[in-house]
Amino acid sequence: MTTQKILLKLTVNGEARQALVHPMSRLLDVIREDFCLTGTKEGCGEGECGACSVILDGSLVNACLVPAIQAQGSTMRTVEGLAGVDLSPLQQAFLHHGGAQCGFCTPGMLVAGTYLLETDAVQDEDRAREGLSGNLCRCTGYVKIVDALLAAREGRP
């Protein structure tokens, strides 16, 4: 009685991946369950908290709101793809400034922050705050997250 699965193929953090999934499965569940990339988190399941932020074909998206079939053939970056051998400048700035507390919103914050830096959308503190307004944090009051983002933009630790 269950419906046909599809073979979903994606490039994830530079690697070709595939999984047999239901077309209406959430991309979030595919990332976590099928690709075993558990850095991407579920905080609300309704596109409010941003803990499931990933970069999909160059766009910042909430993976909880993307049906798997709409990611067919896409290129995706998750938090696991942000660091090379070393932490990325933004990750280093988060560490230095104390941008992570409990760490649960952190992957989404870093993905969103990376997107903002790459699209040059962090001209000043107001723009940084606006850009991060889709990512909720309950620990920090955002000060240290914003500081980390501004520092990374300026190439400071």
């Binding site: 009685m1 269950t2 419906t3 046909q4 999934v21 239901h22 077309p23 209406m24 499965s25 959430r26 569940d29 579920e42 399941g45 049906p67 798997a68 079939i69």
Partner: peptide
């Protein structure tokens, strides 16, 4: 997640 993707079909024109 309370939705049931296994019961859903998607037509993709």
């Amino acid at each position: 997640m309370r939705g049931q993707p296994s019961l859903c079909e998607v037509l993709t024109p």
